[in-house]
Design a protein around this nucleic acid. Structure first.
Lengths: 117, 117
DNA sequence: GTGCTGTCTAGACGTTCATCTAATCACGAA
DNA sequence: TTCGTGATTAGATGAACGTCTAGACAGCAC
């Protein structure tokens, strides 16, 4: 189950504020952003990422108003984007974040001059 | 033209690795990620963000294989997400990035422990 | 004024996506 | 083995999205 058909990230870590992306890089990056571009998926990601440990699907699902298969679908999208991974252990399936992926995105969006918000 | 119907960002800067988002925060964040979740838009954003200065639409369009109106549509999406702003100056329209927005996203995805990629 | 160029808006069309129900798979218990 | 529970997969449906063409608008030059 934990085999992932990862989006291949051919490059790494040059912020878009420093260099424009070529079409291939843009396609790779957009694919990962697309995985986070849904309110349910972004919240799923934040739940998994903010938990200090792995999280059981059975603990995730009750937090949402959509059906189980829908949650499962969204988790699959996050998995295929390389943002999380999972493992079945007995009856339950556990998910954990892949922090390198978040770091990669964070670097991609980082701005050299620390702008004031 | 530079009036923007911004996605309201009710909160700011708590990374998802530290705290789970509530549904409202997730909706706000997902809306901005959605703006970057298209290869053309991500590349547009990188072109505008990496240019040291504002960029003329006339210099942007030739880099893409889609029609002018399509580019215009994508720029509007970036504008409404608060990622860029623009101004007409004579015949031409110029775009520039809003770095605070990128910084906001970058912080949202940042991971406390610097993970090795 | 008229014409030309650059950009945006309007509307239509085909594709992709989020969601559901029903069915299937994986595992543990009796 | 059979049953029950947790999670995923399969297929269908309605909404949202990306793209196009045609038209409208803004500004410059003549």
């Amino acid at each position: 189950m934990s085999k992932q058909e990862l989006v291949v990230l051919t490059t790494c870590c040059t912020p878009i504020s420093e260099a424009a992306l070529d079409p291939g890089q843009a396609a790779d990056g957009a694919a990962v952003f697309k995985a986070l571009a849904d309110p349910i998926r972004l919240r799923l990601m934040s739940i998994i990422a903010s938990a200090g440990d792995e999280v059981c699907v059975c603990d995730i699902t009750p937090n949402f108003d959509v059906s189980g298969p829908t949650i499962s679908h969204h988790l699959k999208v996050l998995r295929e984007a390389g943002l999380v991974d999972c493992e079945r252990r007995g009856t339950w399936v556990y998910y954990w974040p892949i922090p390198e992926r978040l770091t990669w995105l964070s670097n991609l969006l980082s701005v050299p001059t620390p702008a004031t918000v």
